[in-house]
């Protein structure tokens, strides 16, 4: 299993945000995509989801190409957006049922798996409610549960901890560790390096739409000459100065 992005150039309205981006992810690997606002993190994810068309380059997931077989390609991807994208017409239970239908999951097997997250996220008993009336944090828990339920080959997460309380963040981190152990690939954008450092295998620093550096935390600290342990604000200061230059 692998995700291979080669020479990807893309953006919005013919204005490229990503320039010749190369990225590879192997089975059981977790990659943290980091960078300043506007560096192209979410744009990369949108390209992987097929929400925008690449201007150049290729994206392959387990040998499948998005443009050739979009449904089969998407079946291998789960997505947790930064802002919850709830279907207003569906109840919590129906969100999970729709995920089962879309991913072709067996309802009998999928339910016990979903229930363990509903319990951990304290959503039990709310299955019949419309999540559109939930708080943002609770809506995010619905999104996470639905995405984890699919157990996709590649999980894409945009700012995973936005709006989550510390307990829910812990549940998510545990689930991500489990997925990694099961050989799934995870690509997440985040600013909170300290929170994810135990789950993430390597970080890719995105700057001006290209991968500037890729490596584990110690390599990043070495490369950017970070003097203060676990103080990643320093890294953002360096990136910001590079950005100005």
């Amino acid at each position: 299993m692998s995700l291979v992005i080669t020479h990807l150039t893309g953006g919005y309205a013919n204005v490229p945000i990503l320039h010749d981006l190369d990225l590879t992810l192997q089975e059981g690997e977790v990659l943290g995509l980091i960078g300043l606002n506007g560096a192209g993190k979410s744009t990369t994810i949108k390209h992987l989801l097929g929400l925008i068309q690449p201007m150049k380059g290729k994206i392959e997931l387990n040998g499948l190409n998005l443009s050739e077989n979009p449904t089969a390609f998407k079946r291998q991807i789960g997505y947790i957006p930064e802002t919850p994208a709830i279907y207003p017409e569906l109840t919590l239970k129906e969100h999970l049922q729709l995920t089962m239908l879309a991913y072709g999951l067996d309802e009998k097997k999928a339910w016990p798996y979903a229930e363990q997250f509903l319990k951990a996220f304290r959503l039990e008993g709310k299955e019949d409610w419309l999540p559109i009336h939930f708080s943002k944090g609770m809506q995010q828990k619905v999104m996470i549960t639905a995405s984890l339920l699919a157990q996709p080959a590649l999980l894409l997460i945009d700012e995973p901890f936005t709006g989550l309380d510390p307990l829910a963040a812990e549940v998510l981190l545990n689930a991500l560790t489990q997925l990694r152990n099961d050989g799934k690939m995870i690509l997440m954008t985040t600013h909170d390096l300290a929170q994810v450092k135990d789950v993430v295998d390597k970080f890719a620093i995105l700057n001006h739409g290209t991968i500037e550096f890729c490596g584990d935390l110690s390599q990043i600290q070495q490369h950017y000459h970070l003097t203060r342990q676990d103080d990643f604000a320093q890294l953002y200061h360096i990136l910001s100065q590079e950005h100005i230059r």
């Binding site: 929400l51 089969a72 729709l98 879309a102």
Partner: peptide, 14 residues
């Protein structure tokens, strides 16, 4: 109806 829904576009719905 659902064409503008982010989840509809990102989930494997043919």
């Amino acid at each position: 109806e659902f064409d503008r829904d982010l989840m509809y576009r990102s989930q494997p719905i043919s």
